[in-house]
C-alpha cells in the first residue's frame, strides 16, 4: 500500500475509533452500566439512564452515522480517493 493510501486508512480508523467510543458510551455505559446512577438525574418524568436506554442512545446513533458520512466524504476528497 503506498503512503497516501496508508494515511487515508489511518485517518479512517481514527475517525471510526472516536465514533465507536461515543457509540459505546451512550448505549452500554449510560443505558446499562451506569443506569442507576444516571436515573438520579431527571429528564422530564424519566430518569436520565432510562431515557438514554430508550431514547437518547438512538438519537446519538443517528448523529454518529451522519458525522461519519460527512467526515469520510471529506477524507475521500482530501486524499483523492473519491469516486468519479
Amino acid at each position: 500500500m503506498d503512503t497516501q493510501a496508508q494515511d487515508y486508512w489511518r485517518a479512517n480508523l481514527r475517525l471510526v475509533t472516536v465514533l465507536l467510543t461515543i457509540w459505546f458510551i451512550c448505549s452500554y455505559l449510560f443505558g446499562i452500566l451506569l443506569v442507576d446512577q444516571l436515573n438520579a438525574i431527571k429528564v422530564g418524568g424519566a430518569g436520565l439512564g432510562f431515557w438514554f436506554a430508550q431514547q437518547g442512545s438512538i438519537y446519538t446513533f443517528l448523529v454518529l452515522i451522519f458525522i461519519y458520512v460527512i467526515r469520510m466524504n471529506a477524507l475521500d476528497k482530501k486524499f483523492g480517493v473519491h469516486e468519479d
Partner: peptide, 8 residues
C-alpha cells in the same frame, strides 16, 4: 438499543 446501534 440493539436493533438501532447495529446500524452504526
Amino acid at each position: 438499543m440493539g436493533w438501532t446501534g447495529g446500524y452504526v
